[in-house]
Design a protein around this nucleic acid. Structure first.
Lengths: 336, 336
DNA sequence: TTGTACGCGTTATCAC
DNA sequence: GTGATAACGCGTACAA
């Protein structure tokens, strides 16, 4: 199909290939007349520039790598959607790379992506910053070559930029409201020790402290991010005699599990048990009653990340860390 | 970082750049000794081949384009996940492109992707085959240049390959079971007129015909793919006096809406109303009772698509259309 | 088995 | 303003 190159265009237009290149790249040093002539020929020939050759010359193909642990997770799926759209609106392609959760695999894929000479790498989700700082060294190193963007994760370093949701404040607010609406035993139910996970826990502690309620370790429980696992774990906790009248979760799927737990035990919602979800996903609307949930503003997070990246590309001074406020969407699993 | 090229490697190893290239490409015409020497130097130098230069020479960068209307839709998010993983396991990168539903936009992005010289384009989901065949002409044309793969969509043409789920049989089976368990008025509740949507409808008709039940147009209803819209529409249908004792849906979100409708009207499930979902997504597990749903085998669909593509790449003879059987996952919204 | 030299289709640097 | 021409880094005939 694309049998035409600079050479053909230049022949047909009666100019040199240099001029064709200038026209293609919007170089101002071309007379309006020749520019039009060349454009006309390009159009007639149905000419398309060869991106490989261009890439070789410019050392970029306007492509960024997006890494995520699991793109089928609702939260990450949303993030990828917004990132891709935003990048494309700026003329960038997205190479997707789902890594899973294993550090070695993540590193391997990271290097792979880097070897493809993408212009930047976006790490979507808080699963890419490890506890031990030496496990993050590869990111710091790579940042010497290309900007690294974290979506809802935080890592300090030259040429590394983070955009995060204020999870701590969000959880603190929600838990305070739970306490304010008469709940004394708020269970904190979470799934991950990631950056964002730890932040949420701090928010929980903040709220307790503000209300003068002592922290009780037995009210902080971890569970895999799965509806059924969540329900079952709550059932066995209750079985064991743990008393709780509200559940603050780190993800909607855990909150759905809490609703199912309440149904199974015939506990009324929100009076017998109040529940708050996180991420305001589709899941929050599936249950009866519908779940009060924290909107973690994925879209804003993603467009901000991309805007920051564009700033980096154009040499503008951009903040190394941007925080976005969340929203609490009140529905019927709470009585505030 | 990557300051090293063939030239450097060849210098350090005391060989020519041709030999370096041979080593890199696994050409057998290299003595074991020189091969080891070159590999050692590459390792020491931390050499990485330049993909752009390689792409220019070989006219491929081992990249395929994945188009989808909306990657945050649970079904498509799953598809993209499996496609990406499968492609990567074969050494291919994935460029993601979310198009939305507008035909012109889809065409624009399709051409954009093509201009990036991807090795193939995968159209994920049944939203890329239009009713009017002239609207698909651009796909037929493009297929002259590169293979086009449809995931759960079907289009006939040279160099176009479809992998589909047997939606017709799946719906037919489910509806037959609904009828067999005593339901006379099965509502068919769907959201899209896509290839897969039409197929499902045929399955519904098949089941009615097999049971000798006359088709009633008022029992075939369309609704946007949204939990709340589904519930509200069912509520107003009931309000209008439409009688139905079972709902066969084309998507789990509609089925969730049906559960909520039943709750709102105090109808018992499955005796007062039986419900069947589609896609066996997370949503099917969120409600009480949990939803009987058709597993449309996304993973098998995607890996098969990629395997077929690899066959095309290697010149093997592959079927232009592969059908995969679905599974009915029985849960508690049905009494069969 | 190894090396030389050219081609891939652009971009960019010179002269004019 | 425009036109030669040298990079860009790698693959590969062809020659040795």
């Amino acid at each position: 199909m694309d049998f035409f190159f600079f050479f053909d265009v230049s022949q047909h237009a009666g100019v040199s290939i240099a001029t064709v290149s200038r026209v293609l790249n919007g170089n101002p040093n071309v007379s309006e007349k020749t520019r039009e002539k060349v454009l006309k020929v390009m159009d007639e020939l149905g000419y398309t520039p060869n991106v490989f050759a261009r890439g070789l010359g410019l050392d970029t193909m306007h492509t960024v790598g997006i890494m995520c642990s699991d793109s089928s997770d609702p939260y990450l799926a949303g993030a990828i959607y917004y990132l891709e759209r935003s990048l494309r609106s700026h003329g960038y392609d997205s190479i997707l790379c789902c890594t899973g959760y294993d550090l070695e695999v993540k590193q391997k894929y990271f290097e792979l992506l880097r070897s493809k000479r993408v212009d930047a790498i976006i790490l979507a989700g808080s699963k890419f910053v490890e506890m031990r700082s030496r496990d993050n060294a590869y990111l710091l190193d790579a940042a010497a070559d290309l900007p690294i963007m974290l979506v809802n994760g935080w890592l300090e370093g030259e040429n590394i930029y983070s955009t995060v949701c204020d999870d701590r404040a969000a959880v603190s607010q929600a838990v305070s409201l739970l306490i304010g609406s008469g709940h004394k035993n708020v269970l904190y139910f979470y799934s991950s020790h990631s950056y964002s996970g730890l932040n949420k826990l701090e928010g929980y502690k903040d709220a307790l402290a503000a209300a003068g309620i002592p922290l009780r370790q037995e009210l902080i429980r971890q569970c895999v991010k799965d509806v059924t696992a969540s329900r079952d774990m709550l059932l066995s906790l209750a079985e064991e005699g743990l008393v709780f009248d509200a559940v603050m979760t780190s993800d909607d799927s855990l909150a759905v599990g809490a609703v199912k737990y309440a149904h199974a035990r015939n506990i009324s919602i929100p009076d017998g048990l109040s529940i708050v979800g996180y991420n305001n996903s589709l899941l929050a609307l599936c249950t009866d009653p519908e779940i009060t949930s924290v909107d973690s503003k994925v879209e804003a997070l993603c467009t901000t990340t991309v805007n920051t990246l564009m700033g980096v590309f154009s040499g503008v001074n951009v903040p190394s860390r941007t925080t976005i406020a969340s929203d609490l969407i009140k529905r019927n699993t709470t009585n505030f």
